[in-house]
Write a protein that binds this DNA or RNA. Structure first.
Length: 530
DNA sequence: AGGTGTGCCT
């Protein structure tokens, strides 16, 4: 390389350090091409790594640049693989790795930290990579070993993960956290917690791993307790920890805790990004504060499909179907692409409001406009929509003609509409076919029994209950959580042990009477509330 | 001569 190139290269690289936008980088890059500086692998590597760290990297652009290079280094290969892994294009990353080997480059410890991440969904390639790691002698290198433990833990292959953990002589907080995460994924709450208590050093990431671990395992109280312990230990909650805690608040109905986190965010100037914003919207909606959920949503600068879907389903759950449908329209006008979960929420909203035509239209646009093939859950919503509206024949036809086997929830929706509209015979027929095919979860039997009850056939009710007892079905008791004065109380159907039981019963009787009065007043009887 | 990475997030 001549002195002239080196000088040009140095000038450009110092300019690069000040670059902030993609167009600035592209300008420098074209300058480098003109001055032939890109034939300097160091300069080229610097450019590519700039793309690698920028979050809005244009992958196809940087890949073209990579392909145009005459001379590549291990660093350049590593960085290019990293770009694809960061963009979740794992297959491309791995085929690039293969090309790297074919071009005669040896992977180093850095290569493996990217390659192992690319293997999280593909265990056979992961095993092959592990073999390579061993062959090249990187297995006991801390970063690589941590990557391997994470890999096995991620597949819930806890024996292998544990073995690697046990042989590790150089465990750090990441090694421990990776293993804890594996026990969480495989549902071993106690083992995970034991490790968490044992680990010599904890940071915000390990705390939030355990907190979100509890959330994933449905242990919401433990999650919130740990979130409190974290602050008592003097650590500030990080982004993921707050998201996990908010999720626990949403499930527990713990509005006070959720509000506390919101206030904490405001006071500390924590940005309302997509993930945290959605977690807040979800928490407020599930804790009954749909208005606050709406206002948080409006404050989010960057609303993605998850944010919209959260609020749509929140509105639907609050009986505000019209607002839910309107939000869905707004989502489309803002060019946010709905996903399959969005459609479940929207169809639910239609179903509750009896909007049959709108529901059918939306169901059709799912595949026609968005290329999302309706799944069994969407058919379930549609059956529910038709059934609730009293269109039993159409609902039955849909169940017959749907392209996949109806699951117990689809049939449950049909059964429910049989009950509501008094078609006891069809209901009975359906339950028999469900039993035959082994799709009779406890809810199906409860529906059948309720159906007989509402047509006053008490002998049949007793019979179904007896059958359930014989089959050892036990319906999970209905349960709801409510927070009063900072304390979460749990109400389980059939449980009379809580304080103030009499007052609660009186209030609920009052509500019942009020509803009955409304129904009688309304004249068209029992079609909607049951 | 000079730069890369691992664990938690709706």
């Amino acid at each position: 390389m001549s002195g002239r190139y080196v000088k040009a290269s140095q000038r450009c690289l110092s300019l690069l350090d000040q670059c902030r936008t993609m167009s600035q980088i592209k300008q420098i890059q074209s300058h480098l091409i003109v001055s032939a500086t890109l034939s300097d692998p160091f300069a080229a590597g610097k450019i590519i790594s700039f793309f690698a760290v920028s979050s809005n990297a244009d992958v196809s652009h940087v890949y073209k640049l990579f392909l145009s290079l005459q001379h590549r280094t291990t660093f350049i290969w590593n960085t290019m693989i990293r770009v694809f892994v960061d963009k979740n294009e794992n297959a491309t990353a791995l085929s690039l790795y293969k090309n790297m080997l074919q071009s005669g480059f040896l992977p180093n410890n850095y290569t493996f930290s990217f390659v192992l991440r690319a293997c999280t969904e593909n265990s056979s390639l992961g095993l092959a990579s592990h073999a390579q790691v061993i062959k090249l002698g990187w297995e006991s290198y801390d970063f690589v070993l941590n990557g391997l433990i994470h890999l096995y833990a991620n597949w819930s292959s806890m024996e292998a993960a544990r073995k690697l953990f046990d042989v590790s002589t150089d465990r750090d907080v990441i090694t421990w956290t990776a293993l804890i995460n594996g026990y969480v994924k495989s549902g071993h709450a106690e083992l995970a917690r034991e490790l968490f208590d044992q680990m010599p050093e904890r940071n915000a990431v390990s705390w939030s791993a355990m907190i979100t671990g509890y959330v994933h395992m449905g242990m919401f109280r433990q999650a919130l307790e740990l979130f409190n312990d974290m602050q008592l230990s003097g650590l500030h909650p990080n982004h993921a920890g707050m998201v996990g805690a908010l999720c626990a608040c949403a499930s527990l109905g713990s509005l006070d805790h959720g509000r506390w986190i919101h206030t904490y965010m405001d006071r500390n100037g924590i940005e309302l990004d997509r993930v945290l914003g959605t977690a807040l919207v979800d928490m407020y909606a599930k804790c009954g504060c749909i208005e606050i959920a709406c206002s948080v949503f409006e404050k989010m600068p960057d609303k993605d499909v998850f944010a919209f879907t959260s609020l749509i389903s929140g509105l639907a759950n609050h009986g505000r179907s019209a607002d839910a449908i309107q939000l869905f329209a707004r989502m489309q006008s803002e060019e946010v692409i709905p996903n399959e979960v969005t459609f479940i929420s929207v169809l639910n909203a239609c179903s509750r409001m009896g909007m049959v035509d709108e529901g059918l239209r939306i169901f059709n646009c799912m595949s026609v406009v968005y290329g999302i093939e309706p799944g069994v859950q969407h058919y379930g919503c549609l059956v529910d929509l038709l059934g609730r509206a009293g269109l039993l024949e159409e609902a039955k036809r849909l169940v017959r003609e749907m392209p996949m086997e109806p699951d117990s929830y689809v049939l449950g929706a049909l059964l429910n509409s049989c009950r509501v509209h008094g078609d006891v015979e069809l209901g009975k027929e359906m339950v028999e076919s469900l039993v035959e095919r082994g799709l009779d979860h406890d809810g199906v039997h409860v529906l059948l029994s309720n159906m007989y009850a509402s047509s006053n056939r008490w002998d049949r009710v007793v019979k179904v209950r007896e059958e359930m007892g014989a089959k050892k079905f036990r319906k999970e008791p209905g349960c709801s959580l409510i927070e009063i004065g900072g304390r979460v109380s749990e109400f389980v159907a059939g449980d009379m042990s809580y304080l103030l039981v009499e007052e609660v019963m009186l209030v609920s009787l009052g509500i019942d009477n009020h509803l009955k009065f409304l129904l009688l007043d309304d004249g068209n009887s029992n079609s909607n509330i049951c």
